[in-house]
Deep mutational scan, measured.
Amino acid sequence: SHFELRVGTITLHFDNISEELAEELEKLAKNGVHADEIRRWWEEWLK
Rank of each mutant, 00 (worst) to 15 (best):
S1K: 14
S1R: 11
S1E: 09
S1N: 14
S1P: 04
S1D: 09
S1W: 11
H2C: 10
H2D: 08
H2A: 10
H2N: 05
H2E: 08
F3D: 02
F3K: 03
E4R: 02
E4A: 01
E4K: 02
R6L: 15
R6A: 14
R6N: 15
R6W: 12
R6I: 15
V7P: 01
V7D: 03
G8W: 05
G8L: 03
G8H: 03
G8M: 03
T9H: 13
I10K: 03
I10E: 15
I10R: 01
L12E: 01
L12W: 03
L12D: 00
L12K: 00
L12C: 02
L12Q: 00
L12T: 01
L12G: 00
H13F: 13
H13E: 07
H13L: 11
F14P: 00
D15Y: 15
D15P: 10
D15G: 08
D15C: 05
D15H: 15
D15V: 12
N16D: 10
N16F: 09
N16G: 08
N16Q: 04
I17G: 01
I17D: 00
I17H: 01
S18Q: 04
S18W: 03
E19I: 12
E19K: 14
E19W: 10
E19V: 12
E20S: 11
E20H: 09
L21P: 01
L21K: 05
L21A: 12
A22W: 08
E23Q: 15
E24N: 07
E24H: 12
E24G: 04
L25Q: 00
L25P: 00
L25D: 01
E26V: 14
E26F: 11
E26P: 00
K27Q: 13
K27P: 00
K27N: 12
K27L: 11
K27D: 11
K27I: 11
K27Y: 11
K27M: 12
L28C: 04
L28H: 05
L28M: 15
L28Y: 05
L28N: 02
L28F: 05
L28K: 07
L28E: 01
L28G: 02
L28A: 07
A29R: 04
A29I: 04
A29G: 03
K30E: 12
K30W: 08
K30F: 13
K30S: 13
N31Q: 13
G32Q: 05
G32P: 04
G32L: 05
G32V: 08
V33P: 04
V33N: 09
H34R: 11
H34M: 11
D36F: 06
D36E: 12
D36G: 08
E37G: 11
I38N: 00
R39L: 15
R39D: 02
R40Y: 08
R40Q: 10
R40D: 08
R40A: 13
W41L: 13
W41F: 14
W42D: 00
W42A: 14
W42V: 05
W42S: 05
W42K: 02
W42I: 07
E43G: 05
E43S: 08
E43V: 10
E43A: 09
W45I: 08
W45V: 08
W45F: 10
W45D: 02
L46N: 11
L46M: 11
L46Q: 12
L46E: 08
K47D: 08
K47L: 13
K47E: 13
